[in-house]
Design a protein around this nucleic acid. Structure first.
Lengths: 358, 358
DNA sequence: GACACTCTTGCAACCGATTGCAAATTTTCA
DNA sequence: TGAAAATTTGCAATCGGTTGCAAGAGTGTC
């Protein structure tokens, strides 16, 4: 069970060129490098550790030997002793909303640029966090990012007991959250949508939400209603789509249009809006001529000229940057008090709402 | 540096309830379980190993102790000795084509269901595989899946030297590939597109491809041209978009329409087609009335009623299943001869081509 | 040249598991 | 009942690193 180091040295003595390709398969270890450089294993370890006590001369020798052997330190072995694996769990349950491709792109790049590695976990309907938590603990991840706007509040709560740094991105804000939350104020966004529609003179308004059990849906609806409640001359209705997905939005809008639709709808997510627009189109209608539509997120597709959706922009770059920053800080200070970090949203004027009335 | 096991036992003696929450933070180890169950560490290890030699009685004792301590084995430590981490590198450079969200969804679920964990690597423009390769080696991944239809052939070639199981999904087929390739026959798809357009009576045909350097673009074009070359009465043109993305497709189609456009275009990817359709719409035109469009992939969006794109379906589920199956097989037999595994594509008739001429 | 001080280095224990081997136990069968 | 066979168990070495500690080398000063 120890051919690697033995054989390696042999090849290393034969020819550097050959060695290079072999070292790739029978991976070189600390010990191999130490022997080749004529120093102790500790010396090699220190040479690869920022700020460790090594002389320049030793470091040179070590680097040279490492280069020849194609050595690079085993992150898992070092994680075993240091307790730092640089692995970060990236947990999500939304693999159907195109926005999340943008989100994964930003997360992976952000983590990579800080030397962290995303271990992707697809919840795919699993509501019990215990399995994921156990799995992530098995891999000794340094931290966990949960990216989801739909998970029930107790999902992340389970992580509280475990002293594992966690941030919930796109989660629900709270005065005293169980874990760090980075996202937007969904309640305020709902209110913003309501005011936007009012300013354009709509008097019969509808909320076409995502799944009723999603916290984001609940909060957006609550904010929407709070602004409108009790206003005279304004009627409000609301209903929910089956999920945050195109088809769900389209179906629900088809259903609404078959009855007595509102003048304008606030859709709980852009992907729902796009579904709703498709429903309009199918019935020979369009926005804003027949029905006004405002979405939420400003996903890339919203700006496509054939969609041109008026929406509320959620600053996903800021949210993701802040999430990563929080995780990184927590690596040093895991006990840090959980806080909610919220970012402002803005209305993006495009072509699915009629203009503001004077 | 060894408070975990020591303290843990103490708590375990005090109260099981308390212990549970603590064991979550100061993670219990093999040793803790062994002590609590009154057996050796080997026994505990064996109790958690499928098919190891343990008596039922010991196993019960161990499970009971493990349950009380909230123990689950450390995957990294075990990976260190067994050489199996159950980590699989999932490498991609396409985070802008919505199709890839579907692809990531399928990959992560497929891997997870086989007990493997995806370590996501975002190439984000990096053309040199050495960095990723080194990184993946550092984490001792059991295998690597490269999911990309655009990477240059020598990207995966670098992995050949390393005896690390690798499959290239959505890659270019070859007689004797450097690594396993799973995907479609892009050349055949190009030919299929050409024949589809001919059958509908188009006489002036265009290829609107993705990036010229992408192997998939090159092969699709070659197949397209091969069918059409030398046919009299048929004219062919081709050009390339800047990337596999909406905007790129739209821009290129706008450019084409400002000149002397063909009667029908084969777009190298659905997302380009959607961009092209948007361009038509902007200029007050539509498909198939003014220009015919056929795409490739059949991404979810292609079936949305307001897009309704005629396209060639790529069976991504099959491709992904086969890729995972290959990786799993290679865990046992890493030296397995690389092969190309190709799946058939089918034309999906929707609304952007005129009907077949009699 | 001797002494005190700082910087380097190697030894050896450790991280949390696995596993070959031999001893101890149980089972089987005459 | 007893010996042989089969099963279970623990010891100790190992995987690839890290790190506290003490010894060794190097520097500066008088």
């Amino acid at each position: 069970m120890k051919p690697a180091s033995a054989r390696l040295v042999w090849f290393a003595n034969v020819a550097t060129g050959l060695c290079k390709s072999w070292s790739a398969s029978l991976v070189a270890t600390l010990k191999d490098v130490a022997e080749r450089a004529g120093v102790s294993r500790s010396a090699v370890s220190r040479a690869f550790t920022e700020g460790a006590s090594v002389s320049g001369r030793t470091r040179q020798k070590v680097y040279a030997a490492a280069e020849e052997l194609g050595y690079s330190p085993n992150a898992l072995a070092s994680g075993l002793t240091t307790g730092r694996t640089k692995l970060v769990g990236l947990v999500s349950d939304n693999f159907h909303n195109p926005l999340f491709l943008e989100i994964f792109d930003l997360f992976t790049r952000g983590l990579q640029s800080r030397g962290l590695r995303p271990l992707l976990v697809n919840l795919s309907g699993e509501r019990d966090p215990q399995n994921s938590l156990r799995m992530l603990r098995q891999y000794s991840v340094d931290g966990v990012i949960v990216a989801s706007s739909t998970l029930p509040p107790d999902f992340t709560r389970s992580f509280r007991g475990a002293t594992i740094p966690i941030v919930h991105s796109f989660g629900r804000k709270a005065e005293k959250p169980d874990v760090h939350v980075v996202g937007i104020d969904n309640h305020a966004c709902g209110a913003m949508a309501a005011r936007t529609l009012l300013a354009r003179g709509y008097t019969s308004l509808g909320f076409l939400g995502g799944p009723e059990e999603a916290t984001s849906t609940q909060d957006r609806l609550a904010g929407f209603l709070q602004v409108l409640k009790g206003r005279k001359g304004i009627s409000v209705t609301h209903s929910f789509a089956d999920g945050y997905a195109f088809t769900a939005g389209r179906e629900e809008m088809l259903r609404l249009l078959s009855g007595d639709p509102a003048e304008a709808y606030f859709c709980g997510d852009d992907v729902l809006s796009v579904g709703a627009l498709s429903a309009l189109q199918t019935l020979g209608m369009s926005a804003p001529a027949d029905v006004g539509i405002i979405g939420l997120n400003d996903m890339e597709m919203a700006s496509w000229p054939n969609i041109n959706l008026s929406t509320i922009r959620q600053p996903i770059e800021d949210i993701i940057d802040a999430s990563i920053e929080l995780i990184v800080n927590m690596l040093d200070d895991p006990e840090r008090m959980p806080e909610s970090r919220l970012f402002r949203c803005d209305v993006i004027e495009r072509g699915t709402l009629r203009p503001i009335v004077a």
